[in-house]
Nucleic acid binder design. Structure first.
Lengths: 159, 159
DNA sequence: CAAACAGTTTAGCCTTGGCTAACAATGTTG
DNA sequence: CAACATTGTTAGCCAAGGCTAAACTGTTTG
């Protein structure tokens, strides 16, 4: 085994800067992040497709490519994946649509995204910055934290 | 050009749920996130190596593998990259050390990480959750937001 | 209605970050 | 000090997510 030097504070929920967390916990932190990364892009695509359908009535590959700042080829490939995952339906050269599962994912993502964005604005972050941060943060915020953020925002708005 | 349907609210800094942001801004959001992803893992490694050096006096590949929940081969490969990037120095079969640049990066990452973690705890998030969320969020929080988080935490501690 | 243009797909390439299996070096200990 | 256990490295595989170039489809328009 490794990690066998000082045995102090293997359990204390102390501040991170003080001591290393126990191996298993530490490992789980990284594993969770790695995991989030796998679904992140998928969720972003589905969320964006949902938004385009809502606000534009259709979701074309070219729009997605523009808004994601990515080549059309990349989008095309990704759509194939989304299809295999049964999140979207698409006929070649036609607009995309979300399946049931896709719609559910889009709503969830949209909701998370909005909670984080509103929270950041309530905290006092400038709009442009809040948007960028929210885009990055949304996939890494637990339900627990999300809940707290939402309550915080509501609280703020009352005053 | 694409994106040519309704022309309303192309500039209003409205809430995301209401309308799509202008293409350029939207594109920049995604680009920023993609960019963060490229440096994220590197920073995690460097940060962890720094922590191990501080708290254990040495940083062995096996420790890193354990704490990241990743195979030793993966760590070994990554160390080669860190070497090329001149962030660590390493002699085969020996402990790692950080270069100047590596130390600077480790400190910065550590500081960001702590600010986010403390902020989440100050918000009322449970320790275990806060740690996981902080690990995921730290790379996506702008300096502006970081600043606000820090002030919020200090404020909270006074009361 | 044919040509030109815009949009989409396919093919083929690259890098990253995982993995396992096999091998090499180091360290510990009977 | 030899054998074994631990640690580190290398080789070779895979999937994901980018890219460009080229081929194909659909739409608009002279």
């Amino acid at each position: 085994m490794t990690d066998s030097k000082p045995n102090a504070s293997l359990t204390a929920p102390s501040i991170h800067g003080d001591a290393l967390p126990p191996v298993e916990q530490h490992a789980q932190q990284y594993a969770t992040v790695r995991n989030a990364h796998e679904t992140e892009l998928i969720e972003d695509y589905v969320e964006l497709i949902g938004d385009l359908l809502t606000h534009r009535g259709e979701a074309r590959a070219a729009d997605i490519a523009n808004r994601m700042a990515v080549s059309q080829a990349t989008v095309s490939k990704m759509i194939r994946r989304l299809n295999e995952l049964e999140l979207v339906t698409s006929k070649p050269y036609r607009s995309l649509f979300l399946t049931e599962a896709g719609q559910k994912m889009a709503e969830t993502s949209r909701a998370r995204h909005d909670i984080v964005l509103h929270f950041l604005r309530a905290l006092g972050v400038k709009d442009a910055t809040a948007r960028i941060d929210a885009e990055g943060m949304e996939h890494h915020v637990s339900d627990e934290t999300l809940d707290i953020m939402q309550r915080f925002t509501e609280q703020q708005q009352k005053s």
